[in-house]
């Protein structure tokens, strides 16, 4: 680039320094916590010097090795974090699949309807998108108690799907708008019904949009704390509320490393997700921005 060659050295150094600081700020907390999760509490929360967490002085003294899996064992085996992990898997996968199924249908309809009400549905969805989730949760609790459906996974899944719908509709709607109308119209001229045109012609070219939207539905289900912590009974908890429950009881018993190990375990899937789908995540955020 011609611009890059003419940039003065001082400015270049400044930009580089800024980026290095940012990259450290963004990555160091994760690196530090992952490293520390293999130490004992006296090292990770060392009162003397943080250097002990790097060398693992106390870990060496207590376990005979510089690294220990005690935190992971405590979280996954003793406190049954594996159950929470399975619940998370069930919840996030169901939320993603159901959200996409009903979201693509709705988003397609919104993108292809020229009537006034389609516009109003989108505006209503925008308002719903802005509702803090916890305020909706306080509306669910009492009815769910009365109907006796509180505390189980299916209820939570449906609620998360519904909370996710406004965003999914907006995003898929803008993806569908970018697909020319002629495509489904010519399919219908050839004798397809509307649904066949949608199923056989539009969806195959929509895959990138569906995958991107699916990623965000997955993230919403995976990252949620407000809904899952309030609507799931103790034995059905997913990972995030489980971690929160670690904070109260286990921290007091001096087992804070269990929580650290659980936190690192919950972070790993997200890392893998970004690693493989970085491009889709970036394009998804941009699509919403450019069209919305």
């Amino acid at each position: 680039m011609s611009v890059a060659t003419r940039r003065p050295a001082a400015l270049n150094a400044l930009i580089l320094a800024f980026l290095v600081i940012w990259v450290i700020a963004a990555a160091f907390p994760f690196a530090w916590t992952v490293w520390g999760s293999f130490k004992v509490e006296a090292d990770f929360f060392s009162r003397q010097s943080w250097w002990m967490a790097i060398e693992g002085t106390r870990t060496q003294a207590q376990t005979g090795s510089a690294f220990t899996l005690a935190g992971y064992e405590g979280a996954w085996v003793k406190n049954e974090f594996w159950k929470a992990a399975i619940n998370t898997l069930i919840v996030t996968l169901s939320v993603t699949i159901i959200s996409l199924t009903i979201g693509t249908l709705g988003g397609y309809a919104l993108a292809r309807s020229g009537y006034r009400y389609a516009f109003w549905i989108l505006i209503a969805a925008l308002i719903f998108r802005a509702m803090p989730h916890i305020t909706l949760v306080s509306g669910y609790m009492l009815p769910f108690f009365q109907l006796n459906i509180w505390g189980v996974l299916p209820t939570t899944i449906i609620v998360l799907v519904a909370i996710n719908q406004p965003f999914t509709l907006w995003m898929l709607h803008s993806f569908f708008l970018s697909i020319p109308k002629d495509l489904d119209e010519s399919a219908m001229v050839d004798g397809c019904t509307r649904f066949q045109a949608f199923r056989m012609v539009i969806i195959p070219v929509m895959w990138p949009g569906v995958i991107t939207t699916g990623l965000f539905s997955f993230l919403l289900g995976y990252n949620d704390f407000a809904v899952t912590s309030m609507l799931l009974a103790q034995e059905n908890q997913t990972m995030v509320p489980k971690i929160a429950s670690f904070l109260g009881s286990i921290q007091n018993e001096g087992n804070v490393m269990f929580a650290v190990a659980a936190v690192v375990s919950a972070t790993v899937p997200l890392f893998i997700l970004v690693l493989f789908f970085q491009r889709q995540i970036v394009s998804g955020l941009t699509a919403g921005a450019v069209k919305g």
């Binding site: 009903i102 709705g106 969805a125 909706l136 509306g139 509709l169």
Partner: peptide, 17 residues
Amino acid sequence: FIFPSILAMVLFITLPI
């Protein structure tokens, strides 16, 4: 097309409000 979406939003967003 939009019925399932609307149903979910009415049941779990509008009614809770």
